[in-house]
Amino acid sequence: MSHIWKMVFKRLGLGFLTLFIVSLLIFLATELLPGDFAQEFLGQSATPETVAAIRRQLGLDLPMHIRYIQWLAGVLHGDFGTSLANHRPVIDLIGGRLGNTLFLALYAAAIAVPLSLMLGILAALFRNSFFDRFVNASALTSISFPEFFVAYILIFWLAGMGGMFPSMANFRGDPNFLDMLYRTFLPAITLTLVVTAHMMRMTRAAIINLLASPYIEMARLKGMTPMRVIVRHALPNALAPIINVIALNLAYLITGVVVVEVVFVYPGLGQLMVDSVAARDMPVVQAVALIFAAAYVLLNLTADVLATLSNPRLVHRR
């Protein structure tokens, strides 16, 4: 068994290396920023003396690699620097919003993952039937829709006309959990629609790909039922691709969340990022980008490790 753990540790090592390089990349991006950080921090009122003072205070006069190490050390302690826009610590701005974004993403994932796996398996089971064609065409259509289109259609139908659900994610008055689910229903269902389509199509493709294998024909020739052929013979071998599909789409949620948060005025990280990009508030952009990228890398890493562990050829070697 030790070789499999070696493999897993190697993957983990590579993942953290990637994370490190990504942080370097994001840090270096700031260095490309035209204009002086201290100048922007102080705005109009800056005199050369105050600029020099703030530079010293922020450590901007130090060489780049030292500043990177300081920045990274700060990040690891939860110190992301100070916002240019309102001069508050970045961590304060991020704090609650990170929770909100995670809540929304998990909410959508909790609906999307089981739904799409089920639809994908059913479509593969009844491939080329009317059901399959219908699900496929609908999925293709919803993949093609921009997120904001899906969001506004839902608002138009479910909030504007019937008034069934709130169109704005309103967090006032300390809502309880069920209340939260109700109030964030529309943004969650928007994300779900977008991601389910992708995931369902990829699940179906992963399974159908395997159905041409000789061992599937063998299972049918052993007199197994179609359901057993799919669940017992195809699914275990489709695990690795399906795990990757899920990871890929959960990662996609991260991107989707940005647009959806803006449409529904949802107080999450995505909206913060968009506002900060518009204000060119670099420390905040940096921090949020790093958080998104880290989530993305960790998701892919988890998928990679799980896929390795699900492969009998790797787990049980000769």
């Binding site: 000789p214 061992y215 063998m218 007199g223 071998n237 009998p312």
Partner: peptide
């Protein structure tokens, strides 16, 4: 009916056993 015959009363041995055994079991 055919499913009950296959495997039980009529069996099949394929050309490539390496490809016809399910790698997961």
């Amino acid at each position: 009916t055919k499913r009950h015959l296959r495997g039980a009363r009529i069996a099949y041995v394929a050309q490539s056993a390496a490809a016809s055994f399910n790698p997961a079991h």
